[in-house]
Design a binder for these strands. Structure first.
Lengths: 211, 211
DNA sequence: TAACATTCTGACACTTTAGTCAAGTTTGTA
DNA sequence: TACAAACTTGACTAAAGTGTCAGAATGTTA
């Protein structure tokens, strides 16, 4: 039986192997989703005998839940450095840049989370939902402040963030369609830079010429 | 043995039951993806004995492939009425409206297709890929024409369409996040109308005030 | 209504997957 | 170095899933 108490040994084999399993699992989940993933696939992916995986986790949902936590924590970390005290132009540009960079460097996590959304977000705890709402609200308030200062046009902040989120996530989740559209075999750094430029330009100034 | 030759009987029981199976299958696939779906689930969903499903389709991938075709055909149908000879403002507004309406009325198909994207689009045939590219190109050329006429600012048409596509699809695939963000239990018609207004306003005019 | 084709389905054989277990090895520590 | 705790793993059982088939039911047509 494994111990849940934190001991010296937890910095050793246990945490190392748990990390190894989670690492392999997120890859498989990001390809097949929760329902499509077999525990055998996870074991194979991380080169461990199945029984060894069972030694650390009691089933695949336990692994899955841990991964949900990890991904959410990863987001917080990735975006906490964004400073809302910048001018809107720069802040939005930085936000888009950070989100695109995250999408580029964490395709697997992005897809993993999208799978969870498709299945209805059943594994998001109430706490996690609240956290997401809270973080979003925080950013929305900044945008509302800018609007009140006349630095942005009046707009619906919630839909505004959806446009930002959707546009940036797209390049990870629909990389196939993006590749098709851009006529590339694989998206490059330059593609992401152009995406950044296009999104920012469009979101900030729109596509209609000033009359 | 089933016949592939088209006969009178094809308008009857056969096509009726195939439709019934496809209808149930797309629901299950949209919840669990290809790998997560068991043929038993499909049979249960459409109230048929498993062996009866096997009478019409030899396995689940055959059903899946038929569904991919259907969904792509559905899109063509849904968007073929968009007239590119309108002024950009109206054309873009109509395009967004049509896409949002499609998202609202075809959440299942949208999610189904997103699952396929996440798994890498393996089941999109070369022909289907080419078709997608072709349709996109057609719209891009219209946008490029508008730019050349000075009706739109110079912009990267490919990323431009990605913003449109991503923003509209979001409301179907990430309905959970959208509901969270908008503080709703379920998205209403009004939410989609506001989404339309927000997207169009932002895409056309941006969020920065005219200086 | 006879006879032929199509459709339906319970029951079966076979394969894959989940999860357990006991017997082994390694590691930490006194 | 000895002993316990932690870790590893092949082998196993039970359950779930795939796909087939023979025979019953229904539909079609002359």
């Amino acid at each position: 039986m494994q111990k849940k108490v934190i001991k010296k040994s937890d910095i050793g084999i246990r945490s190392k192997n748990e990390a190894k399993i989670l690492e392999g699992a997120v890859i498989v989940f990001s390809r097949k989703g929760l329902d499509g993933t077999r525990l055998t696939d996870i074991a194979t992916e991380c080169n461990l005998p199945k029984a060894n995986v069972y030694y650390y986790f009691s089933n695949k949902t336990e692994i899955y839940e841990r991964l949900i936590e990890n991904v959410l924590a990863g987001w917080d970390k990735a975006f906490e450095h964004i400073k809302p005290d910048l001018e809107p132009e720069d802040a939005i540009s930085e936000y888009v840049k950070a989100k695109l960079e995250y999408a580029r460097n964490n395709i697997i996590e992005s897809k993993f989370f999208t799978f969870e959304m498709l299945r209805g977000g059943q594994f998001l705890s109430k706490k996690q939902r609240q956290h997401i709402v809270q973080v979003t609200r925080k950013y929305e308030q900044v945008v509302e402040y800018w609007i009140s200062e006349g630095k942005l046009k009046p707009l619906d902040t919630r839909h505004f963030f959806i446009i930002l989120w959707a546009s940036t996530e797209f390049y990870a989740n629909y990389s196939n369609i993006a590749e098709l559209t851009l006529g590339k075999h694989k998206l490059t750094k330059t593609d992401f830079e152009q995406a950044h430029k296009s999104i920012v330009q469009n979101i900030l100034n729109g596509c209609l010429p000033q009359q």
